[in-house]
Structures are given as structure tokens and as C-alpha cells.
Nucleic acid binder design. Structure first.
Length: 481
RNA sequence: GGGCCGUUAGCUCAGUCGGUAGAGCACCUGCCUUUUAAGCAGGGAGUCGCUGGUUCGAGCCCAGCACGGCCUACCA
């Protein structure tokens, strides 16, 4: 391939010229054949197959919208350009002008009159029939995955559509799109360890955000009433099929609403996504039938837990420990202090025994206050907050609450978190004084919702893992030669 | 963190019992002016992930390491 490059240069061909004007994409030529037959068009793209035929030849030219065949004849392009043609390889980028026709075997093709090399490839493409299968290579060299696997291209086109639909959905409802800091002096809004970095000229430790929550709420205080942000959050935790250290989240906040409104919003959003992407509310993910038609099931957390470990187990922490052990869990290895708290136990039971079974779209509602420091209590039980998580196919897709807007209560909750952090819980919240000050100025009653965009893309594209829907997933660097 | 599996040509993969490394695609040469996984004939291409060990001899057996995949654990 490099030898061909040298030969081309010797023949006076620039292997890397500048712009090229095309008149049509390949698919337009194929679709509009009846109208275009016999006329001249100009196309451009990558050669994905070359079939030499002596003094003629065929090539498959692929552009962003599809594929069409080129037919190059020496008596049509002349000796000089035919010499260029003979030095082309699969993978090269070319432009071609010619007459639209149909071959004997009925394939819409271009009888090339003028052929231009636009970029010479020096490395071979993956195998044309099997494509690129090795998962490691597909993640590390995504460009090759995209060139050789149409399914990969489809996933990322759909991802783009999903984000666009979310944006349209919220914009139609008068939400304002905001951009809040990724570098934060105090991180909060979720339980997670953060990535730490340093600002030189301020000589300041900053953290990559783990959530947008506390800044978006400041905007609610500021009077914007409906705000959202779609952006990357970063969590310094393990990686698996549903967790990536950097991931995309949609967060939205709506003044004068509560978590019931957020449930309706969630249902509408998923219905809209499914209808636009699948033509209806039903689709399948990894063999599971899913129907996102509203209304979804609403299950109280404590009811769900009681169903698994029995009602009596909920009377005390001790009883719950016993019941959890009986159910096959190992509460002793719960992180934090020596004795697992009631809330942590409930969370463990949810994770292990409840959530994986939530195949049909379900809202798990009304969580223990202890594990929800930013949510408002229910009117009838001060230990329970108005909060829900979204589950589809056993995957957690989002989290929402009626936001706590009582500044004094918020201080108490965050103080408890600070104590836990002092006790070694690295994922507990810090005290964000500026956020508290904002609340003291008065935040209207507000509903908030966070949705894991990558997981939504997984679900909607029938992808098995989060890395399959992130273009360049985090990987350990390859060892250098 | 634990378990299982993988790593051989640019790609997809074989490699038997431990005996000097194989195929297809791609690439190069020749023939071929309607092919389409074009065809026919020929050719070049390898640090068998890395390091060490066992052995007369290691792609193959053993140990360690690296990277990855799947499962599991952890994780709002």
C-alpha cells in the first residue's frame, strides 16, 4: 500500500488533495435511479471492495448514507486515470464522476468518467466478511469498528437521536437547558467517590462532578423554574456492564412539582422514545419483552422488601439482619461501620433480591430517609422520603425525588452525612455551605429527576453493555512497544 | 477483589502426541472490459502477549506478569 503511494507520487498524483464537491450521496443515486439514469453525478467515499477485471473493474464505494458500485473502464477514464485506479486499495478514499446506469445483474452503478484519489490508506482494513470481532479492538479502535460493522454505526446514530429526542421533549415543555460546573470544589448530589484534580493558579483541589443536582437546584432558586442538563458525570468506582467511570446523565428540575409529576414525566419520555425509535411502546432487550406504555407499576420499597424477607423483619434492625442472612445475604460485609444500618440493609436487599426481578417498567417508591439525604419526607412517615428509582429489565435507569427545600432540615441531613464521612464512609456527602445558603433564600417545592442516558441507549438499541453505547469507553492503556 | 476463558500474519481463525508455523480475507505479480465474498495462476508476509522454567527440542507443559472478555463481588 505504501509502495502504491510512492508510485502514485511518481506519476504526479497528490494522494492527499483538498476539498471535493459531490453532487449526490450513494443512497440518493440508488433511490432516485429512475430519475437519474443516464445523467452524471459525483460521489465520494471509501472503497470497501475492489474487483479488478483486466482493462476494467468494479469497486464498492461507501459513504455516510450507504453504498454504491463504481464501474471503471480504461476506454472510459483514459490511460492516465486507469493507472491511478490500478494503484488503489480497499480502504482508499476516492471521488468519482460518471454516468448512472444499471449493470447486467441489475445493480445501480456509476460508469466512471473521472476518478480522483482523495486520501490514500496505508493500513489494511479488518476482514471484509467477518468484520472486526475482537471486543478489545472494537473499543480501542472504534473507527475500525465503525468502518466494518454497520450495527455499531446504527447504535451511535440511535444514541444521537435519543439525546435529541430528550432535548426536544424537554424544550417543548419549557425547560431551559443549562451548563453547570464539571470542576467542583465540593461534590455532591449522589453517593460516590470522585475523581480529584488540581487547579494550578488557584492552588485548589477540585473534583469532577458526580452529579449536577446541587447546581441545578441553585438555578431553581434563581427562578428558572424548569431546568435540565445533559452531560457527563464521573464516579471513581468499579466498572461493569452497567457502570462506566464517565457516563452521561440527564437531570431535570421542575418547580412546583413533586415526584408524582416526575413519574408522569418519566412515563411520557420513555413512551416518546420507544414510539420514535420502535414505532410503538413495545420492544425487546436481550430477549426480554418490554412495554413502556403508561402507567407503570408503582411498588413501595418497604412493601417490596417485606415481600422478600417477611413483614416481621421490618420491625428492627436486628430482625432485618437475621432475615437478610436467612435470605442468603451476608450483611456483615456491608461497608461502613461494624453494624449495618437499617437503611443500608434495605438497600442491600433491594439490590440483591428485588431489583433484578423488575423486568417490566417499575417505579420503586418511598425510600428510607437515611439513604436519601436530599429528598423530602412523606407527610405520614418522617423516616420515609418521596423518592423513586426507575427499573426496566432489572436495570436502574433513573432516580428522582420531591426535593428537600427546608434549609434547616437539609443542614441536619448533611451534618449526618459529614459524620459518616468522618467515620470512614468515603461516599457520604460533604457540607456544601453555598448550597445551603441558596436554600435559605427559598427554593420553591420542586421535583427532580435523573436518568442514565447510556443505560437508556443500551435498552433502546438492544445492547448488552454500557461500553457498547459509549464511543470511546475507558480502557487501561495498551502496553507501549 | 475472586473465578473461568482468551491472547498465533493487518483481520477472522486452525494448529493433532512436545519435533523447524497454517488457511481464508487483505497485500504484491501475471491473465481477464458487466463483476459483486468475481475468477484463475503465482508470491511475500510471524518477537505464536511478555518473562522465566522443564526438556535434546516448547505455539503446545509449568510458574509469574500484562492486557482483554464473561461471571461474581463492590457501586445511587
Amino acid at each position: 500500500m505504501r509502495a502504491n503511494l510512492e508510485s502514485l507520487r511518481e506519476n504526479g498524483v497528490d494522494p492527499y488533495p483538498r476539498r471535493f464537491e459531490r453532487s449526490h450521496h450513494s443512497r440518493e443515486v440508488v433511490n432516485d435511479f429512475d430519475r437519474l439514469e443516464g445523467s452524471e453525478v459525483t460521489v465520494a467515499g471509501r472503497l470497501m471492495a475492489v474487483r479488478g477485471h483486466g482493462k476494467a473493474g468494479f469497486a464498492d464505494l461507501v459513504d455516510v448514507k450507504g453504498k454504491m458500485q463504481l464501474y471503471v473502464r480504461r476506454d472510459e477514464v483514459g490511460d492516465e486515470q486507469f493507472a491511478v485506479w490500478e494503484l488503489l486499495n480497499v480502504g482508499d478514499i476516492v471521488g468519482a464522476r460518471g454516468e448512472v446506469f444499471r449493470t447486467r445483474s441489475d445493480e445501480v452503478s456509476l460508469k466512471v468518467k473521472k476518478l480522483v484519489l482523495l486520501a490514500k490508506a496505508l493500513l489494511p482494513l479488518p476482514e471484509k466478511w467477518h468484520g472486526l470481532k475482537d471486543k478489545e479492538l472494537r473499543y480501542r479502535r472504534r473507527y475500525l469498528d465503525l468502518i466494518s460493522n454497520e450495527e455499531t454505526r446504527a447504535v451511535f446514530r440511535t444514541r444521537s437521536r435519543i439525546v435529541r429526542i430528550m432535548r426536544e421533549f424537554l424544550t417543548e415543555r419549557d425547560f431551559l437547558e443549562a451548563e453547570t460546573p464539571i470542576l467542583q470544589p465540593i461534590y455532591g448530589g449522589a453517593f460516590a467517590r470522585a475523581f480529584e484534580t488540581h487547579h494550578r493558579s488557584l492552588d485548589l483541589t477540585l473534583y469532577l462532578r458526580i452529579a449536577d443536582e446541587l447546581y441545578l437546584k441553585r438555578l431553581i432558586v434563581g427562578g428558572f423554574e424548569r431546568v435540565f442538563e445533559i452531560g457527563k458525570d464521573f464516579r471513581n468506582e468499579g466498572m461493569d456492564r452497567t457502570h462506566s467511570p464517565e457516563f452521561t446523565q440527564l437531570e431535570l428540575y421542575q418547580a412546583y412539582a413533586d415526584y408524582n409529576v416526575m413519574m408522569e414525566t418519566t412515563e411520557s419520555l420513555f413512551e416518546r422514545l420507544a414510539c420514535e425509535l420502535h414505532g410503538g411502546t413495545r420492544f425487546t432487550w436481550q430477549g426480554q419483552e418490554i412495554d413502556v406504555k403508561a402507567p407503570w407499576k408503582r411498588v413501595k420499597v418497604m412493601d417490596a422488601v417485606a415481600e422478600v424477607v417477611g413483614e416481621d423483619a421490618l420491625r428492627s434492625r436486628e430482625a432485618l439482619v437475621v432475615a437478610a442472612r436467612a435470605a442468603g445475604l451476608d450483611p456483615d460485609d456491608l461497608q461502613g461501620d461494624e453494624l449495618p444500618s437499617f437503611g443500608k440493609l434495605v438497600e442491600k436487599i433491594l439490590d440483591e433480591l428485588v431489583e433484578p426481578k423488575l423486568t417490566e417498567p417499575t417505579f420503586l417508591i418511598d425510600y428510607p430517609l437515611e439513604i436519601s439525604p436530599l429528598a423530602k419526607q412523606t407527610p405520614d412517615d418522617p423516616d420515609i422520603v418521596e423518592r423513586f428509582e426507575i427499573f426496566i429489565a432489572g436495570i436502574e435507569l433513573g432516580n428522582s425525588f420531591t426535593e428537600l427545600n427546608d434549609p434547616d432540615e437539609q443542614v441536619r441531613r448533611l451534618s449526618a452525612q459529614v459524620e459518616k464521612r468522618a467515620g470512614g464512609d468515603e461516599e457520604a456527602h460533604g457540607m456544601d455551605e453555598d448550597f445551603i445558603m441558596a436554600l435559605r433564600h427559598g427554593m420553591p417545592p420542586t421535583g427532580g429527576l435523573g436518568i442514565g442516558v447510556d443505560r437508556v441507549v443500551m435498552l433502546m438499541t438492544d445492547s448488552p453493555g454500557i461500553r457498547d453505547v459509549i464511543l470511546f469507553p475507558t480502557m487501561r492503556p495498551e502496553q507501549s512497544e
